[in-house]
Design a protein around this nucleic acid. Structure first.
Lengths: 233, 233
DNA sequence: TCAAAAGTGTTTATGGTACACCCATGA
DNA sequence: TCATGGGTGTACCATAAACACTTTTGA
């Protein structure tokens, strides 16, 4: 805050602040979004992102972690801040500012029991139903942020299992950018970054021959980031 | 907001929301930041960004415009959202969430009378004093956002007068990125974008020979953006 | 006439892009 | 044996980077 300290909030009206989460996952070569069918009014039956009001003594990031934990059962979910939506009339009936965060989760780690409990479903990113309020825009914005970020940080790894194959990594990037890449050029590029460690195991779930598994080398990644680079696939 | 509608705000405590502005300007080959010496408690005498609480029925962007208008006397100042700062203890005594915006203004258009009125000063970006609270971090984050954005949008034009020379444009980019560029390569690059229109006038304020003035061609810029590009100087 | 900034071209290096075939294996 | 996905190398082109001298003109 700056120089002004006028009490604008002396009226009865309350300013609500919500941490809303755009939860991306990757599964079966598809980028997916976790959304919820509202089971209470207002807007019962409509699809929505998940979120929660931020408590008065709670960091916004902690509110985000709380929401993600409740929904996915996971601690330490990767998330980044997207935009903050502050139009006075964006919500119905009350003033609510939404601080949007996008999260990336490995679908196979996701606790499936939580789905039914919360009325949650994974939708393919290009088959989404209409969402409530301005949530459609929030998804578009988050996806654009993800795409932009994935260009200069190998963020995509957050969406893959710990061990993954290069064809898997490629199909993830194809899902994020919604276009095909040449497999020779893709492989050349990601290997040139030297952040992948080849393992002795193969994953044979997709082919008879099997594809070598790799894991992500965090130490080399740090080095890469500090030297400043650009993914540019 | 998502599925939860619990009333976390039933206590006396209020959640404040502020629109805080990181105002960049360009002058005499230097990138500058507009900051304020607080003349009231708390934190009297400390340097601070400018901001205001968001009114209950006011869009956050409108609050930003209100602040910028009051400080600079200008309508239609260019601004972008930076981060939202939501730590519970980031402000003193009360809970305040800060939605940070960075603004770019042409210093010569700035109404100098407003400086004294608000206790405002332009500081060179690399000679800033310590700012109050987390405002130092807000400036660093905003500067990084500006740098990143300037790579894929010719955002720098917002900081220059309507008519400007190529050496001026270069020194702006040198101020933003804090490094030198080769003048031949810089000129080649910006002219290749075809968003500059050469005028018949010269600016002789910096040399006897004078440098041709250019203006920014908005139509070509739109075309450029839609075709997707990357400034990459 | 000279100091100081404006303006101009070419060469080299790097990295992106396009492109087609062989390999391994389980069914 | 064959269908399927995994894996490899090369040639070309576009663009970034490095680099030095001439021009203009007011003082």
């Amino acid at each position: 805050m700056g120089t002004q300290q006028i009490d604008y909030y002396s009226s009865q009206d309350k300013m609500y602040v919500a941490a809303d989460c755009i939860v991306f996952g990757f599964d079966e070569d598809e980028l997916k979004l976790l959304i919820f069918k509202r089971r209470v009014e207002p807007d019962k039956g409509n699809w929505s992102l998940i979120g929660s009001f931020v408590k008065i003594d709670e960091d916004v990031d902690d509110a985000t972690r709380r929401v993600l934990k409740e929904i996915t059962g996971l601690d330490n979910v990767y998330f980044e801040q997207s935009y903050t939506y502050g139009n006075a009339n964006r919500d119905k009936g009350y003033r609510c500012i939404s601080i949007a965060k996008y999260a990336l989760i490995r679908i196979e780690e996701y606790d499936k029991n939580l789905v039914e409990k919360h009325g949650a479903y994974w939708y393919k990113i290009n088959e989404l139903p209409k969402l409530t309020l301005d949530h459609d825009k929030m998804v578009i914005d988050a996806l654009n942020k993800l795409r932009r970020k994935a260009r200069y940080q190998p963020i995509g790894f957050e969406l893959l299992p710990e061990k993954f194959t290069i064809p898997q990594l490629q199909s993830l990037y194809e899902a994020i950018y919604q276009r095909k890449f040449d497999s020779r050029n893709f492989r050349k590029k990601v290997l040139s970054l030297k952040v992948l460690e080849k393992l002795d195991e193969k994953d044979k779930s997709n082919s008879k021959r099997g594809a070598f598994l790799y894991k992500f080398n965090n130490k080399n990644y740090e080095r890469l980031l500090n030297s400043g680079y650009n993914f540019e696939i």
